[in-house]
Design a protein around this nucleic acid. Structure first.
Lengths: 196, 196, 196, 196
DNA sequence: TATGAATGAGATTTCATTCAT
DNA sequence: GATGAATGAAATCTCATTCAT
């Protein structure tokens, strides 16, 4: 019956995404998550040792979800510029879905709310996202789209930061609908810095 | 005697910067702040209505401090590129000093930990930082250093995001000493995108 | 399982009667009530929102208890004089049991310790006690025991006040055993004023 | 300079009457009393050892004030009935002025908020009021207005209780203006019980 | 003497976690 | 396995009182 068990876990993690997402780690209450998951409060403890562990498992779930998404997205696009735009749009959706977690994601890296293991996990994820970006730029170099002397690491930093800032701006500050946000202005300008 | 009162407030805010900075809002205890400030716990309540108010006043203090610093820094430099580098270094110091607050600064924008008034304050600050950056780019256009058709707003987004990502990376992930971080690689690449 | 829940509530209210009764609202500590009820401190908060709510529910409980008692008592007696004496004895027991609450019952009417809803409840109770007394006098008029022109309202005021003062005097000031207090002197004199 | 000192004390007690009267013992804050008295907070401690002592001294002041008032009133009236009415009106004014203190006056008798000494003082006062009432009835017996076999003690209990209940009813429950409350209905009915 | 400033002791309440069915 | 009920540890905030000028 581990299948059923796994299903239950999933159900709880999804409830956790809702509640932690809306309230943040501290204001979220285990009871609310239980209600959201339509189970009894103490049942959560049958699947997760503690609130913290549940939070961590949720983070890992989200991160893995993101990674698999981005792989799909990149596999379905070709060309450096197209991939970059797809990456940006996907990233925008991601932070829109997890706006409320941003707070915790950062706190997750820095404070001790989160265990060492998960911090490492998050760093690894961040690194992976970087690798992905670097891969895109590498591809661009190979294909001759980008200049040969491009430092792909620096390019990834700039791309990541710019996209993050841009979507953060539009979503959080201006309150825009993520479907309506067009990343081309950012990508265009980036291209000036990196193209051949 | 208001001078003394103001001094005490200062003293408490400085302690708050230490403690909130290290622990984040929730794990920070009023008592620790009192100990850090070398005063009695309830004395804090003579100066601030509540933990939340103290936190908010601290945020405002930091923000104002940053703004006045950045003004100084820009007044003491000339030329678009030089200003940009000075801005980056200063920003790096700032986030290094307030790493632990990043979490709260974000949560400050999004969660209800912080009152509407302070959220507005933070947005205003963010906008001001953007204006500053746009001002630098405007200057560059006027002086002929940057290309005429540059969209200074997008440029500011990219600059802000890149600098933030870069310093975040070096400080948080790689654990580098802020004095040793050299922003020129970022600025150089940005320049490719914006120069004439 | 609501039966068990109701039982627990009862148990807490009874502990509250003891502790609030001995100490008054402010000096009573939730912890003491918990100890008296032989449960954990926070269990109280599973049943009552706050100390204030517990106090209010307790008042309502006592008041309802009194009303049902007095109904019983009057149903088991016949004749105006007999009912009046039974009323007095019952009232004496009541204030003896809740001496310590007198303070709060009054403060309950006047101060803001108690919410508007409960104040209304207490007034309603007071009015009901008055009605009961008026009913007794009405009965006496009908049966020809009392004079026809008797103002039953004024008579109720005098009866209530006299009985209250008399028992208060004997119990609080003279420290008498309530079982030993004989209300006939009061009733006899009242009768001079009201009989045919 | 004890004259000035005495004046200051007075000033504080009067402020205390206002604040304790409006808020009751527990919700009243020393600081408010200081503000009401237009002095510094710690100055109160130059004149009274503690909040409790201030409260007690205030009670004694009020009680003595009442006693001297009632003496005046009775000296300026003649005849048992007239004195009784004057007593009632004066009592009505008194409780109207100190409605908020009723709560504390009772708690003063019962709880340990107030020291043994003051409790005794209050009992003594209550006894004195009773004596006064008994004196009125004694006078009526002597003058032939009241019946010879009247138990003046019981009469005093009934009179005190009735007047108290009547004014309490009109003032607290019905919210009447004390000047408009006419005690004659009560006195008339009492008279039926006590007159020759 | 008068007072603004400082404080410590203490009480309510919250909530993650455990218990018992 | 699932859960409602119970709980204790902890944290904010209040306010009478003391200190220092």
């Amino acid at each position: 019956m581990t299948g059923m068990r796994e299903e239950r876990r999933q159900q709880i993690i999804e409830a956790a995404i809702m509640v932690f997402g809306n309230k943040g780690y501290h204001r979220a209450k285990i009871e609310e998550i239980a209600i959201e998951a339509e189970i009894g409060k103490s049942t959560i403890y049958e699947y997760f040792i503690s609130k913290k562990e549940l939070f961590e498992e949720m983070i890992i779930f989200i991160v893995e979800d993101y990674v698999s998404q981005i792989e799909d997205v990149l596999n379905n696009t070709s060309g450096c510029r197209e991939k970059l735009i797809a990456f940006a749009i996907n990233y925008g959706n991601f932070i829109n879905n997890h706006v409320g977690l941003a707070e915790n994601t950062i706190s997750a890296s820095e404070s001790t709310t989160v265990s060492f293991g998960v911090k490492k996990e998050i760093k690894r994820w961040k690194m992976q996202v970087f690798s992905t970006l670097e891969g895109i730029f590498q591809l661009g170099k190979s294909s001759g789209e980008l200049r040969n002397d491009l430092d792909t690491n620096i390019a990834a930093v700039i791309a990541m930061g710019s996209i993050n800032e841009y979507y953060g701006m539009q979503l959080l500050i201006k309150g825009m609908n993520p479907a309506k946000i067009d990343p081309t202005p950012i990508v265009d300008m980036l291209y000036k810095a990196i193209k051949k």
